[in-house]
Simulated scan of single mutants.
Amino acid sequence: MTAFPMGPALLFCPADRADRFAKAAERADAVILDLEDAVAFEDKEQARKNLAASALDPERTIVRVNPVGSPSFRADLEALAVTGYRYVMAAKAEDPKAIAHSLRKFQVVALLETALGVVRAPEIAQAENVAALMWGAEDLLASLGGESSRRADGSYRSVAVAARSAVLLAAGAFGKGAIDSIYGNIADTAGLEEEARDGAASGFAAKACIHPGQVGSVRAAYAPSEAEKDYAREVLAAAKGQGGVFSFRGEMIDGPLLRQAEQTLRRAGILA
């Protein structure tokens, strides 16, 4: 898992709802103030005024702006300029050069939610000001002419799984954080926790939430169990003095497994 300074639970908050800003920031590990899809066009100007007047912790705040080059993008930047926020989520990111130039003053979470954005994930990850990649399932399927990213049982369709993996791999290849997509079924906390647990185990640094009630499930999924922490401590202790591969509880342990154990303790806050 590549480090990202916020998470594991990132909570979207519509920027036209200033009354929710403080509550969202209190509930989650970081808040994403949304100027894009969560705000109707006629409400975007008020959303920008709300953003400009806000004073959340810049170290725990991300602002999702409209796509680079869109008619609303310049106005978003003007509103951002009077704030202390320096983390920006670039919606529907596709062009690494545009991200590097237009958002050069910011740390960028590139939201890859179109077919072109996903296939360009490695290029986008290499932009110097990109701190993390996130993928978006439903916009991606819409860009392909599809109807839903999930099957009736809630599992992802194959193309969504491929996109999720491609974004994670690109982020990891170039040392950037990876953020997992939202889970749209708010009532299905068990499904959310299962998906978040898989994301944590796969290497995602955080997961985006669309409702405050999802935060606890994501945090629980990202927090290693006592058994997992105990195993990690014990296998790392057993490794001391070993010259290479060794046996531990009937399992052959080598370098990759030791790094996984270290990551477990990092997620638990035990290792830096």
Rank of each mutant, 00 (worst) to 15 (best):
L112Y: 06
G117S: 09
G117P: 10
V118D: 01
V118F: 03
V119P: 07
V119C: 10
V119E: 08
R120Q: 14
A121M: 08
A121D: 07
A121E: 04
P122K: 01
E123F: 06
E123P: 01
E123S: 09
I124R: 08
I124D: 02
A125S: 14
A125D: 08
A125C: 13
A125F: 05
Q126M: 15
A127T: 10
A127M: 11
A127S: 13
E128F: 11
E128K: 14
E128Q: 15
N129K: 11
N129D: 06
N129A: 07
V130K: 03
A131R: 12
A132F: 02
M134L: 15
M134P: 09
W135P: 10
G136C: 10
G136R: 00
G136Y: 01
G136A: 13
A137R: 00
A137P: 07
E138S: 12
E138D: 12
E138F: 02
E138P: 03
D139T: 14
D139H: 12
L140N: 04
L140R: 03
G145K: 04
G146K: 05
G146E: 01
G146N: 04
E147A: 15
E147H: 12
S148Q: 00
S148R: 00
S149N: 00
S149F: 07
S149W: 06
S149T: 04
R150S: 01
R151M: 05
R151C: 07
R151V: 06
A152C: 05
A152N: 11
D153W: 00
D153R: 05
G154A: 02
G154Y: 03
S155N: 00
S155W: 02
Y156F: 14
Y156V: 06
R157N: 11
R157W: 01
S158L: 14
V159G: 05
V159F: 09
V161L: 15
V161K: 13
A162R: 14
A162E: 14
A163Q: 04
V167F: 03
V167R: 03
V167L: 05
L168H: 02
L168K: 00
L169A: 14
A170Y: 03
A170C: 08
A171Q: 02
G172K: 04
G172E: 08
G172A: 14
A173Q: 12
A173D: 10
A173F: 07
A173V: 10
A173S: 15
